[in-house]
Design a protein around this nucleic acid. Sequence first.
DNA 1: CGGTAAACGAGACGGTACGTCCTGTCTTGAT
DNA 2: ATCAAGACAGGACGTACCGTCTCGTTTACCG
Lengths: 206, 206, 206, 206
Amino acid sequence: MQSRTPASRTGRPRSAAADAAILAATRQALVELGWSRLTLGDVATRAGVAKTTLYRRWAGKHELVVDAVAELFDELQLPDRGSLAADIEGVVLQFAAILARPEAKSGLMAVVAESTRDEALRERIRASIVDRQKRLVLEGRARAEARGELPPPAGPEEAARTVDLIFDVVAGAVVHRTLVSAEPADEAWVRGFTRVLLGGLGAAST
Amino acid sequence: MQSRTPASRTGRPRSAAADAAILAATRQALVELGWSRLTLGDVATRAGVAKTTLYRRWAGKHELVVDAVAELFDELQLPDRGSLAADIEGVVLQFAAILARPEAKSGLMAVVAESTRDEALRERIRASIVDRQKRLVLEGRARAEARGELPPPAGPEEAARTVDLIFDVVAGAVVHRTLVSAEPADEAWVRGFTRVLLGGLGAAST
Amino acid sequence: MQSRTPASRTGRPRSAAADAAILAATRQALVELGWSRLTLGDVATRAGVAKTTLYRRWAGKHELVVDAVAELFDELQLPDRGSLAADIEGVVLQFAAILARPEAKSGLMAVVAESTRDEALRERIRASIVDRQKRLVLEGRARAEARGELPPPAGPEEAARTVDLIFDVVAGAVVHRTLVSAEPADEAWVRGFTRVLLGGLGAAST
Amino acid sequence: MQSRTPASRTGRPRSAAADAAILAATRQALVELGWSRLTLGDVATRAGVAKTTLYRRWAGKHELVVDAVAELFDELQLPDRGSLAADIEGVVLQFAAILARPEAKSGLMAVVAESTRDEALRERIRASIVDRQKRLVLEGRARAEARGELPPPAGPEEAARTVDLIFDVVAGAVVHRTLVSAEPADEAWVRGFTRVLLGGLGAAST
DNA sequence: CGGTAAACGAGACGGTACGTCCTGTCTTGAT
DNA sequence: ATCAAGACAGGACGTACCGTCTCGTTTACCG
């Protein structure tokens, strides 16, 4: 994932096990120490690896954590629950469950913070985490259209704009609820949120 | 703001000018260096203040940045533009404008990241930034009810829950758009967002 | 002693008790902490005095300790024990007893060390400690001459040279024994030293 | 010298050049700044070395200066000048010449002062400086006995006691003359001192 | 199978920032 | 004017990590 395929033919090949051990150690350290106290020397020790080995693969703390956290989100799925509302509730709950894990909480916002001044890092985050999960919105939308719950988009450009907007609203709301408000995004909250998302503010307090 | 009112009568009183100079220097450093390269020694130098003075008032980088960033959000207002949609668009645009400033971007997510492991820091963020701005939601809601655009809440508990939900959705969406998607939350986007917020997903692509 | 007689008539007069309290606190701190860990803030606190008061009277740590230690040596006396050898042994034992006290040990060498680069400090040490005790050598010599144990000096210049030499030998030997060799300058050692001083190396091992 | 032979086989070996550079820089700083203004950060900079490297080898300012100063005394020799008096005068003059150098003056008394409260430091001083130079007394004594100028000691214990005594008298007198009296231990003074040392006080004023 | 070249562990390195401590000065209100 | 109290600018402390480097060792491939 992080390898830039050095394309060398000779010499000892890089240990594949080391990569996995390092990422696992990174997540473990995030759980125990959080972002700010996590050090690469400690990660290397936990992984049973020399610091050199770690730096040969990742440029720094931020890049490493992006990769370590990205793996967490790959388990997201969009189960077919029969209606758009149920589908949304299902995937939002999954997303909230991942965000509730300390290894995600600690690391995610920190790399986002840093990405405001580091274009390459932002690209890495987008490629590894954000864009990869937009598939869920696309799939959900397609299903809703098939069911007749939503009208088809006016055009491809309109479609892309809508997907981005929905993703910002959904991901943003869950993140804000979990990290800033620091309240659980539990079933009750998710139901309320889905109602607003589908019906607008007027539907909020029913 | 950060002072825990040491209430000492004797001795030389703390310089009020130092506080303002430090917070201003912090914002300047955030603009020039970003969060990760900002150092307290540098902030002290910029403020023309000894490191000691800085540490006498703030416990660390995180606390300092919370206070420095919090001041940015105090300029938010809710102008009466005649309709709920227009009011929302107005305040969201203001919010987006503040978040677009580098001193807000760099610092805000970093302290949120740290707050996932530091309960006191989270409280400080909530008190200094989040709760202070919920007034906007309350005011907007009251106006909308007076205009008949929204029904009154079912009860006080219901009202609080709705305010929190709306705040999470609005703030979360703007933050995600600005920092994660890294696209401008401009007028077009805000119009689209407001339409969804008021009318739900079905109204998105009209 | 340290006062430069500010000769001011008006205002609140300086507290005389403060001087004694500060010097006593300095010696106590020397005993408990030694030279390097002694701080003026701590001394002021022990003396129940503000730091300002301390700095109004002494220029710094070195000057303060010189005065605090100098008082220790003022109790030296030259009792008439009937012979030059006995007189020497008596005063050397007294000198050794003072040097064995931690408040003298800790401070004395430190100010001497600093005095190698501070002419004013050296003068203060000489005036407060060294020259003040040369009286003992003068008195001892006079007694020995009266008893016929030593011939009178060839002249005043010769006399001064001899006094200085003897002082360097006696004080130097005791200091070196106590602080560098870190062995007690007890009666046995003092007897051996006196034998050498009076009779030369050939008499050492009798 | 300061290395406690960590005996590690793996890893990058310690730079031998760094040790020499640090000790030389320490002496240079002692000359220019004296003991109290010497800082380890400055020494590191002068030596072209990181502070870390310095602290990896020495525990602090005192230990470092002991080693830096100790090297100065290793050049002492006992030239055979034909008589005990001449031998003593020769070595005392050499000793005085070293003590006259600012890098020795500034540092030596300071570490002795600290050693009164630090047993390990005292041992280091004794091992690195004092005991190493007692060879001079032993050699001089042996020569004098061979020449018939001094009687052989009564026994091994007596011999050791005498060596220590002579060392305290010689070193103490020169140190006191140089640092406390702050007068040069020049040829005239050394002649007078040697006369007293060999013949006792009665021989002083001839 | 033996040589070669890269990866590996270990840990020293130059460097930067940390948060604390002390110095010597100052500013307050009270004496 | 002096005092107690304590904030202040400044600077050194000793520690912790960073990211690089230099070792000696291991391990795959390639001739």
